[in-house]
Design a protein around this nucleic acid. Sequence first.
DNA 1: CGATTGACGTACG
DNA 2: TCGTACGCCAATC
Length: 118
Amino acid sequence: MAKLKFEKQNDFFQQVYQVVRLIPKGKVTSYGAIAKYLGSAKSSRVVGYAMNNSHAQTPPVPAHRVVNRNGMLTGKHFFADEKEMQRLLETEGVKVKKDKVLNFSICFWDPMLHLQIE
DNA sequence: CGATTGACGTACG
DNA sequence: TCGTACGCCAATC
């Protein structure tokens, strides 16, 4: 359980990256959950857009831990190899089948429940 | 400044 | 269960 505090409204992107970096190993979350956590539940698309630039961030953002609401690896296409994302998840203990996270409800990590904004 | 785009999510048939 | 339509919002053109 980590506590997170956002001083000011940093760049929305930076907030997204920050949350993604806090995702525990072996866990995954969704774009919508992150958006909601950041206070913009309807900005899920923007979260995805932010992830598009995650590769340029330092330290790198574990984008493979972020999937859509169905647990599908919609972002795999943005990795060097489409199987890279799945491989990374399985390496962390997350089973993936047909581009979908198995036991998604169990592997799902909701920032709203594990992070607290003071 | 208006139009388009998108790693989403929900509603509807 | 599956495909299509639409809304949302920031970035980009």
